[in-house]
Amino acid sequence: MKNKLKVLRAMNDWSQAELGQQLDVSRQAINAIETGKYDPSLPLAFKIARLFGMPIEEIFDDGFEGDKNA
């Protein structure tokens, strides 16, 4: 799943380790999420969204292009 985590992290001048500290996960976990090798659980995705003050769907993109009003 694509995501904007790397961009959001860069906007705050955080290292992967620093973001990991905020989310209580390892630097490797942040790297795996940023590179799309690991999709976070729903609780962790909510935690990320809360940290950046954004809705989950603005951070994570599952590639769905259908009618978003449906």
Partner: peptide, 12 residues
């Protein structure tokens, strides 16, 4: 970020 702390998550 909280200052004066090392950059490891508590779990890590």
């Amino acid at each position: 970020m909280p200052e004066g702390q090392d950059a490891y998550a508590p779990r890590e």
